[in-house]
Design a protein around this nucleic acid. Sequence first.
DNA 1: TGCGCCATGTAACGCGTTACATGATTTC
DNA 2: GAAATCATGTAACGCGTTACATGGCGCA
Lengths: 188, 188
Amino acid sequence: MIALSYALLCMLARKPCSGYELTKLLQVFWQAQHSQIYPLLAKLEKAGYVTFELIGQTGKPDKKLYSITDAGVAELQQWIRDQPAAEKLERDEFLIKIYAIGLMEPQTSRRLFLERREALLTRLRRLEGEIKLMEEEQDPPVTDYASRQFGRYLLYQRRVRVVREEIDWVDWALPLFKSSASALPERN
Amino acid sequence: MIALSYALLCMLARKPCSGYELTKLLQVFWQAQHSQIYPLLAKLEKAGYVTFELIGQTGKPDKKLYSITDAGVAELQQWIRDQPAAEKLERDEFLIKIYAIGLMEPQTSRRLFLERREALLTRLRRLEGEIKLMEEEQDPPVTDYASRQFGRYLLYQRRVRVVREEIDWVDWALPLFKSSASALPERN
DNA sequence: TGCGCCATGTAACGCGTTACATGATTTC
DNA sequence: GAAATCATGTAACGCGTTACATGGCGCA
């Protein structure tokens, strides 16, 4: 059982999903390709942690709708409770570039930061949209421990905070490249 | 040339290092084992991007002190300028747990968050210490584009901000697990 | 006496990526 | 007419991890 297995179980604990859907949803916090997910789902099914139902569709390919089993929930709970989490792993090529940013001309540095800012803004909007959708739910509200979305809400809050923080950092760093005076763009 | 190659070149652009030292320093922003780094350094040397000098030591094993070459700097600059950075990759098992936190008893959730908080505080202190060291430099100051440490300073600032942000997020989330009334610990 | 630090390497293995394969429907 | 979306799989490859190998010095 690799970590990705538990990521899949987590998603299925919220609601039944197809492998295709899991691949998309996982992107937010655990990037993996479908070529890795499909075989893993088959393995989880053999182990009895998930089951699937074949759903015939018209106009779209048929799909397998996976659900978590009681054994799956128990396995997941045990992992969450007892397994010490591995150190976080991060691979961000932008940070490599930052480390050697002093080698570049100021205008190149500014360009890289501004491009980063743009990408961050796009992601921020998407995350804020999804959080808003969750917050509109009322019964029960997402801030409630009992909500199906509770964990997902916490995670998205974390995501959006990190993105906002990075935008602030970019805005803090940009004036240090004084190639020319130029006003900062607005965050919203 | 994989991303790690450029990470190594970045480090060597700041100052000559041994493979052993690179392995340690890289942990902050690009985790890799020495078993991957040593062969890569040999490859970079064959390509002419780095050179090394054998340093005999007493009481410690000899070491190879690697330095970046002009060709290495040029290669690095070109990569920073022209290569679009790959999407950031993050693998944090704690986030998986958060997603399914609603399956756990509130006291277990609280325990997980408090343990996380402790680990974050430790890292925060280490990062703040290193930043302080850099800020004590005066000639030129690290906030100066011309400083050898400039890029490293930007990176550490980013790191420390992310950690502070996560602590704030933990403190925001903790009261949502109302298993019992308990005051928040102080950040400092 | 044993563990951790310094220091560099090689070997085996497997997780994870990229590429191959298929095909209907919707959108530009 | 081309490209994207939905949907599931397999095959090849290689990056990255874990483990093996060596050895002196300092510390508890």
